[in-house]
Amino acid sequence: MAGSTPASPTAEVPLAAAAPLIAAAAAPRKTLGGEAWRRFRRHRLAVASALVLALMTFAVLFGSLIWPVPINAIDFAAHLQGPSLAHPLGTDDLGQDLLARMLYGGRISLAVGFASMVIAVLVGTLVGAVAGSSRSATDTGLVWLIDLFLSLPQLPLLLLLIYLFRASLRKLAGLEIGTFILIVVVIGGFRWMSVARLVRAEFLSLREKEFVEAARALGAPQWRLVMHHILPNAFGPVIVAATIEVANAIIAESTLSFLGLGFPPDVPSWGRILYDAQDYLDIAPHWALFAGGAIFLTVMAINYVGDGLRDALDPRRVL
């Protein structure tokens, strides 16, 4: 096992002499959560990224209180201006303040990213776990389902789904909430396959491991095998996949916004801002740079936090 430390040789001495020696080599008491936090802190990049993420989350949640400029105040006299004191991030083609729009749009982008990731990971883990722990027909059927979803032409289907359900959901939950639910479900619903495949593959290899067999020999029921022995050991790659899903979802949302199927054009999200900016790249590069930079920074930070989490939650890794 990689990264294992040579343990103290104390317990290899004959039984009678062993007890006092072992007591001398007592390890400090530690809880599981505290231990994971200690290990996470060792990962500098992850800690820095967590700070960046926290700062971003704070900014998009409370930034509009500190910078109370309306997102749709049109001022043609100040259109396409670069950063200035009046507009720290410049303005767009309608003279709207970009900082205000970024702060508002970040809320949507981050919320869509995380919510879609949660759906993708939940569905993927469920499908992967059921497929990986059942034999024969169920497994085959679920693998077919995964392949089916992977081979579907996603964009036309997304369009169809959104056309079909947009009106009724908006009526049910209001314009913004309805659109949010629809987008999150649609993005998450088309992104669980990679997680499902990962989880299934992990399950297939883990369920043959001797420690799982040992638990079976102890009389552990199936749910206990899955929840205590297989799933915790399968989560390393899933955490990494989850962080990538957040990034993918943020980008997928921008695609939908671009096609006019996401949020209405007057509601900004980072992806929406980026797409609006592309026609003006040569005369107003700041417009695209800030939105793109925010997406880039978020995705990077999430990836590093994912790496740190994976390492911190794996007790075999020496940190």
Binding site: S4, A7, A11, E12, I22, A26, A27, K30, P315, R316
Partner: peptide, 13 residues
């Protein structure tokens, strides 16, 4: 010994 309770398997020979 009792102190081994809270350790993880990889810490052992």
């Amino acid at each position: 010994g009792a102190d081994h309770m809270r350790r993880y398997p990889h810490e052992f020979s």
